[in-house]
Design a protein around this nucleic acid. Structure first.
Lengths: 218, 218
DNA sequence: ATGTAACGTAACTTATTTGTAACATAAACC
DNA sequence: GGTTTATGTTACAAATAAGTTACGTTACAT
């Protein structure tokens, strides 16, 4: 899960980033509006934004209504001032939540978790004519469901979770057969990849000799 | 829209009732746990609860987990103390929001509006000829009530709460048999699914081999 | 107390899945 | 070019997960 932190106080950024990363979130942070806009425009996948309202080069509310709202990215506003009108305004604009500084990091974490749980959006990964539905754990070729066996599905899931990145053969063995004590033959992996390619088509999974396999997103 | 206010401070009750009624909500209020339980049991339609945690005859958290949570009524906790642990606990229990006193009435109103808008909730989940009524906790096939046993109902509820998402067998065991220490046999799940399919028809629940089961909304 | 319903386990069945072995091909290296 | 190593391919017997049926036990209501 990707969280974007927009806040001009470096101390807060450092503290929050640390806390969020401890909870397995991937965190990026920006300290002004300008950088944030650039970031938003080049990053299609952001799951949540924590947004300070008062920033050196502008105002978080405007940023929200002009760039964030239309993309439906859940947002938590922060303000230093305990201003009733601002809270009401922020919430009515469509923010998911609103906290005033000083706030408790644990509370923010709890609220973030809540929002992300609630907003679990459908996650579809598409590569060429193959669609991996992470929620249903279902793979489509075009519009037809591919009949994959449990282990085929697991391996493909692993590859899709690491788009554009090589997954080593040893990693595959470790992750897929961890319960058995990873006692399977190395060739077994090869066979499964053959079977996967039979069903997916030959152009989805790339072999990286000496290392493993990889799926490239367009 | 019906809002229930549980709070032992009469001044707060009066202020909030007035503000809420000005906003076209119908408000009832209770000042202790005992009365609240009686009220809950005789009132099937409550849209939201504002619940003080510290009450003269008990604790709002217990009330919530024993009487409110299972009915899926959105709840906002209030506490006098600004206690980080309590906030986190309350949110993680499943409360929709948490405010600490003193709070701004306008902010509470904004948060209530938000929750009610968000939760304009579907109380009837329909999949093919099966209807799951979350309020009454009963299941219809066509227009006939299905006689489900308690455990069958729980499992189906779990599946319906996760439409379009795989529910793992381990999750089923965890959630359904948590009270026993999850000591049930894995096959038991299989048998219950067989029984469910017998009653629902075979085309409602999809098996995801190696993982679990899933119900797809159309 | 007695009958009924619900529960969980066990034993059985089935189609599928699985892992390996044996062989084929392709890339890498000298 | 020929050898080595890594990966691709095919075929098959063993293993397994899920579906099914049946039954003894417990819980519940009348």
């Amino acid at each position: 899960m990707h969280i974007l932190l927009v806040e001009d106080n470096i101390t807060i950024i450092k503290g929050l980033s640390y806390a969020l990363e401890m909870n397995n979130y991937e965190v990026d942070s920006k300290i002004n509006i300008k950088d944030t806009i650039a970031y938003l425009e080049s990053n299609p996948f952001i799951d949540l934004i924590v947004l300070d309202v008062t920033l050196p080069d502008g105002n978080g509310f405007d940023l929200f209504s002009n760039y964030i709202k239309k993309r439906n990215i859940p947002t938590i506003f922060l303000t230093a001032k305990d201003s009733e009108e601002m809270i009401v305004k922020g919430l009515n604009m469509g923010a998911e939540d609103y906290l005033t500084k000083p706030f408790s990091t644990k509370e923010l974490l709890a609220r973030i978790n809540k929002i992300l749980l609630r907003n679990q959006r459908v996650q579809l990964l598409k590569v060429k004519d193959i669609t991996f539905d992470l929620d249903k754990m279902l793979v489509l070729k075009g519009s037809a469901t591919l009949p994959l066996t449990p282990i085929e599905l697991k391996i493909l899931h692993l590859l899709f979770s690491n788009l554009n990145r090589v997954v080593r053969r040893t990693t595959i063995i470790d992750k897929i057969w961890e319960w058995t004590g990873n006692d399977v033959d190395d060739h077994t992996v090869t066979v499964y990849l053959k079977r996967l390619r039979e069903k997916l088509g030959t152009d989805i999974i790339v072999t990286v000799k000496g290392l493993g396999y990889r799926i490239d997103a367009e």
